[in-house]
Amino acid sequence: MNSLLLTVPTTVPWSPSVAVVMVGCNLFAVAIGYYAIEGKGVGPALPLPELFKGFGVPELLATAALGHLLGTGMVLGLANSGLL
């Protein structure tokens, strides 16, 4: 049982550098989703239509979820490699 506890990866506490990585990954995912999603604007619209033309709430939630998955992987990878 003790060897199982040694395999748990160490995580970094929340810091501005973790926030920058997470925000960057979310912006990257939103930018990719803005051009990759084919059926945009089917659900409810965002309150800022001039900023995201045809980009609604479902698209924003989907791309933000993908961005958080990418950000989690980036933060864990950078932390385990010692760069974060």
Rank of each mutant, 00 (worst) to 15 (best):
E38N: 09
A31H: 11
F28I: 15
S3C: 08
N2D: 09
G24S: 13
M22A: 15
L4D: 06
A36V: 12
G71H: 00
G73S: 13
Y34D: 09
S15I: 09
M22C: 15
N80A: 15
S17A: 14
H68W: 12
A19R: 00
F55E: 03
G43T: 12
A19L: 15
C25R: 02
L46H: 02
V8K: 06
P9V: 12
T11P: 00
N2C: 01
G56K: 01
F52D: 10
G56R: 00
N80K: 15
K53I: 02
A29D: 10
F28P: 06
S3K: 04
P16R: 10
G24M: 10
G54Y: 06
F55H: 03
T63P: 07
G77E: 08
P44R: 13
L83E: 11
F28T: 14
Y34K: 02
A36R: 09
F52P: 03
P16D: 13
L4E: 00
L60T: 10
L6Y: 11
P16I: 13
P13N: 06
A65N: 11
V23C: 12
K53M: 09
N80P: 01
A45T: 12
V57M: 11
G67F: 07
A62K: 01
G54M: 03
L66R: 06
E59A: 06
Y34G: 09
V75N: 00
S3Q: 05
L27V: 14
V18A: 09
G77N: 04
L70V: 10
L66A: 14
V42Q: 11
L46G: 05
A19C: 13
I37S: 00
M74Q: 07
L6C: 04
V8S: 05
I32R: 00
T72A: 08
G41Y: 08
V75P: 00
G39I: 05
N26A: 14
G77F: 06
A45Y: 07
P9Q: 05
G82H: 01
E50W: 15
P13M: 00
V23Q: 12
L84M: 09
L51R: 03
A45P: 12
L4K: 00
A31S: 15
T7R: 14
L70K: 00
M1P: 04
L46P: 03
L27Q: 05
S17Y: 07
L46E: 02
V30S: 10
G77S: 09
H68K: 13
C25P: 12
A62T: 06
G77V: 07
L51H: 05
F55V: 01
N26E: 14
G82E: 00
A45D: 10
V8L: 13
G67Q: 05
A64F: 13
N26L: 08
G24I: 11
P58N: 02
Y34T: 13
S15Q: 08
L70Q: 03
T72L: 12
V30W: 01
A62H: 00
F55D: 04
L46T: 10
L51E: 07
V23W: 13
L76Y: 12
L76S: 11
V42T: 14
L84V: 09
